[in-house]
Nucleic acid binder design. Structure first.
Lengths: 127, 127
DNA sequence: ATAAAGGTTCTAGTTAGTGGAAGGTCAAGG
DNA sequence: CCTTGACCTTCCACTAACTAGAACCTTTAT
C-alpha cells in the first residue's frame, strides 16, 4: 500500500501519516525503488491504533509508549491501565473546569440584554 | 508602573505582558528614557481584562476584538453577546465530546483486569 | 507525448507563549 | 567610586501536532 491508501484506510490525512513517519512514530515497512513509502497491514494497524488513541487525548509521546506496549509481548495490562487511568483523571479534571467556565459564562450571558445600548454586563464582568 | 508591577497586579507572567506588547494587544503607555516599558491604570485594566477573557477560552484574536468593543464607546452589547454565545456553544460542544470520550474510556478501563497478563481490553479496543 | 494525479523533500507557519543568552540600568551598601 | 543584585532590554530558539506550499520526481492513462 502506498501512503494515500493507508491514509484513507486509517482515516488520517496523508500529511499526518508522513509526519508520523518523520518523527518515527509509525514508519513505513519500506520504500519502493523510486522512494515511495510502502506500508503493510501492521503499519496500517498501528496508524489506526494511533488515530484512536489520539482521539482519546493521548499525546504523541503517550502513543509512542502505548505502541511499545502494543508491540511488547511481555507487556502487562496493568501498565496500560495505569496510562488509561491517568488519562481518565485528566478528562474528569477538564470536565470540571469546563463546567465552571460554562456556568460563569452562561450567567453573564444571560445577564446581558444583547441590545444596542453600550452598557454590557459581559464586558463589565471582565473588568 | 514598570512591567513587573503590572504583571503582578494582573496576575500574568512578565514574559506574557511583554509578548502582549509585542503583538500589539496591550501596549505600554510609554517608555522611560532608558527604554523601560511604563504602564498606567488603563493598561493594567486591559491586561486584567485580557487575562479573564483568556481564562474564558477566548483566543488572542477574539480578545483583540473584545478589547476593541471595550474601548469603543459606540459598541452595542449585542456584539459582545454574539461573541460570548458562540464561545458558549463551543464550550457545550467540547463538553459533549469530552463526555463521550469519558464514557468510552471509562468502559474499557473497567473491562481491563489490570494484572500482569498480557491480555488487555484497552489495547484491543484501540485495534 | 503529455497531462493528471500521485509521490518526494524542504521550509515556514500556526497558537500562545516560555526559556535562555547577552547586555543595559538602577538603587543600595561598603 | 565601585560593585552587587535585581531589575530591564532585545533577540533567538523551542514547545505540540500538525498544515500549507514550493519545487521537483514518478506513475498511469489517454
Amino acid at each position: 500500500m502506498q501512503i494515500s491508501d493507508v491514509a484513507k484506510a486509517a482515516n488520517l490525512p496523508v500529511k499526518t501519516v508522513r509526519y508520523y513517519a518523520d518523527i518515527g512514530l509509525v514508519k513505513p515497512a519500506g520504500r519502493t525503488s523510486s522512494g515511495y513509502r510502502s506500508y503493510d497491514e501492521t503499519g496500517l494497524g498501528k496508524l489506526i491504533f494511533v488515530r484512536r488513541a489520539r482521539e482519546f487525548g493521548f499525546s504523541i509521546d503517550e502513543c509512542r509508549e502505548l505502541l511499545g506496549l502494543y508491540e511488547d509481548k511481555n507487556r502487562s495490562s496493568a501498565d496500560v491501565k495505569k496510562l488509561a487511568l491517568i488519562r481518565l483523571g485528566m478528562i474528569e479534571e477538564k470536565q470540571r473546569e469546563l463546567q465552571a467556565l460554562h456556568d460563569e459564562l452562561s450567567r453573564v450571558v444571560h445577564a446581558c440584554a444583547g441590545d444596542n445600548r453600550p452598557n454590557c454586563p459581559i464586558l463589565d464582568h471582565f473588568r
